[in-house]
Design a protein around this nucleic acid. Sequence first.
DNA 1: CCGCTTCGTCGAAGCGTTTCGACGATCATG
DNA 2: CATGATCGTCGAAACGCTTCGACGAAGCGG
Lengths: 352, 352
Amino acid sequence: MATMHDVARLARVSVSTVSYVLTGTRPISQATRDKVLAAMAELDYQPNAMARGLASRRSRILGLLMPMDERGLGATETAFVTGAAAAASAAGYHLVLSPVGGGDLDDLRRLASQRMLDGVVLMEVQLADERVTVLQEAGVPLVLIGRTGDTSTLSYVDIDFDQTVRDAVAHLVGLGHRRIVYVNHSAATLASGYGPALRTRDAFVAAMTGHGLEPVMIPAEDSAAGGRAALAAAFARAPELTAVLAMNETAIFGILGELTGRGLSVPDDVSVVSMVTSTQVAELATPALTAMTSPGSALGRIAIEALLRHLDGPGDQRHQQLLPCALEIRGSTAAPRRPTLVTSRPSSIDGG
Amino acid sequence: MATMHDVARLARVSVSTVSYVLTGTRPISQATRDKVLAAMAELDYQPNAMARGLASRRSRILGLLMPMDERGLGATETAFVTGAAAAASAAGYHLVLSPVGGGDLDDLRRLASQRMLDGVVLMEVQLADERVTVLQEAGVPLVLIGRTGDTSTLSYVDIDFDQTVRDAVAHLVGLGHRRIVYVNHSAATLASGYGPALRTRDAFVAAMTGHGLEPVMIPAEDSAAGGRAALAAAFARAPELTAVLAMNETAIFGILGELTGRGLSVPDDVSVVSMVTSTQVAELATPALTAMTSPGSALGRIAIEALLRHLDGPGDQRHQQLLPCALEIRGSTAAPRRPTLVTSRPSSIDGG
DNA sequence: CCGCTTCGTCGAAGCGTTTCGACGATCATG
DNA sequence: CATGATCGTCGAAACGCTTCGACGAAGCGG
C-alpha cells in the first residue's frame, strides 16, 4: 500500500505538495500537479482514511442512524437511504448506516464521542427523543428526518403531513365520499409520541372539519390482523362508511382482506387510500392502491445537503423543510356507489 | 474532548500505561488500573477512533455491503442486518452498512483501499460477482452471504436451498399434492446468475423427480402483475395444478390476487407455500401463508463471527455453512380437494 | 532598479493512539 | 547470595496525513 511519501519521492516533490494537490488547499502549478498525479496513478495510491481523519479532524463519514426494529425497512425508507447515499457520495463523503436501536443510548453516546462521524442524520424521530439530546451534547452536527416537539433549534426535513392528509381527503371528497374513516397506527404508538401518527391525526380532524364532515379515526396494530380488527371497528362506529384512509402500511393488507371477506368490493363499495406509501407497495395490492407516495429519495438528498452545509458553513444556520406526498391515483378509489347527500348533520358517530 | 494525555496526567502515569489499561496488551497492577479508570471516568474519556485506527492499523469497523435497489429491504434482510450488528457490537466492533450498488465498482475499490474497513460481509452475491474479485485484490477479509459459482477458496454463509425446497415439496406431497408448480424469479434474474433462483430451480427438479413427479416451473417478474401473469401461465401449462410453491416474495401477492380473481380459494382449491420468507410478510396475506422462514438473524450473526475469526486467526481458514429455512405451517396449505392419484405417468407438461 | 506582494513549494510540527525496547523492582532458584 | 526470570511501568518512535510558518522566485508600481 503506497503512502504519500512514496508518491512524493517518485514525483520529486515534498509530501506537503502532494497533500496540496490532493486537497486543493493551496495553489499548485500545473507542471507539479501533473507530476504528482502521474506518480499517484503509477503507484495506485489511495489516501489512508484513518490518517487523513486524524490529521484533519474530519472523517468524511456521515452517519445515518436508523432504528432497525422487527418490521424492516420499507421501500420508502430504502429510497430515503439511497437518496442520502447518492448525495453523500457526490460530495465525497461516505454514508454509513448505523442500526442503533432505541435501547442503546450509551452505544450512541460512545459512537458520537469517538469522533468517527462528522455529522449524522437521525431517522424515525420521536416527539421527545433522547437521542437528539445525546447527539447535541456530544456536539455532533445533526439533521433530523421527522421532527421533535420543539423544532425551534434544530434542522430537519419531514413529510408535510398536513398537506398530504388534506390532499388525500380532498381526493375522496371530490369523488363524492362523505363517510371517511382514518386508520392510524396503534394507540400505543400514538401514546409513545410518534410524530407522523399524531400529526396526521390532527390534520385529518382539520381536513374533515374543513369540509364540514365528521372525522372518524381508528387505531390499528401494525399487522394484517390489526388491520382486520380496525376495519371491523370502523364498521361498528360508522356503518355507512364509503372510504378508508390508511396510514398504517402493514395494516392495510388486513383491511383489504377483511373488506373482501365481508363481500365488499374495492373500490365499488369502499374506496381505499394508502398514506405515505411507496409505489412498490401500492402496486402489490389487488386492485393497486391509490396512494400518497412519499418523496423518499428527495428527503434523503435534502437531509444530507443540509448536513453538509452545517459542516462547512458557520454554525448557526438551520434548515427546516416539509415535503408533501404526491397523490397517485390507481384502482382503489372511485365514486361511492350511493353517495351520502347528508353533509353537515352530525350523526351518532364520535371522533376518536 | 479529553485525550489520553489528560488521563495519564491526572492519574500520574504514562500514556502507554493508559493504553495498556485500555487494550489489555500488557499486565497492569490493580492499583494503577484503578487510578487510570478513575481518571477516565472523571474526564469522561473516549478514545479517538481515528487515532486508534491509525496507530493500530485496525479500524474496528466492519462493512456490510448490500446493494440497495429499488425494491427495498425485506424483513428477511433486516433480520440479517440486526443479527450482524448485534454480533459485531458484542465483539466491540462497529458495523456500517454501505449501500454499494452494482455499478460503482470503482467506489468499492476506493472504499476497500482506504483501509477504513477491517473486513466486509457481502450480501446478494451473484454466481459470478466482480465485487468479490475487487475485494480480494484489495486484500480485505471477506465473508459472503450467498455463494459464487466457485466456492472453493471463500468463506460464506448461505441458505440451504436444497434442503428448503425438499422440505417444502415434502410438505405438499405429504398433504396429497401431485401437481405442484414452482414460481421462480424472472427469466432475466435467472440469466444474470442469481444463485438462489438457480439453486432452487435445480433443487425443485431434484425433489419432484425424487417423488416421481413432474417439475413444472414458471418464472415471474418481481411485481404483483408478474405474479398474476405467472399464475395464468401456470394454469395454461398445468391445468390440474393443486399447489404453488413461490420463491418470489413480491409476485406472491399477485398470485394470491389472481387465484381469488379466478374464483379459486386458498387453500381449498390451491395450496400456496412461500419460500424464504419472513414471518411478517407471511402474515400479511389472507389467509396467512405457510412459508419456509429464513434464518435471517442467525445468518447475520454467523457471518460476522466467521469474519472476526478471519481477522484474528491465521489467514487460511474458511467457514462454509448452509442453514435451511424452517417450515411454518399457516393457513395457505391443506390437502387438495381432489387428490390426483396419477403418480408417475408423464403428462404433456414439460419442466422449465 | 528597489522594495512589496503574490505564487509555489518546502520542512517540520502536530493529530491521539499503539507498540517496542528498556529498565528498575520483586521473586524464586540453585 | 548472586542470577536470571518475571512483572509493571516508562519514554519514544511510529502510523500517514494536514497545516502552519517560512522562503526564494517572480511580478509589479513607482
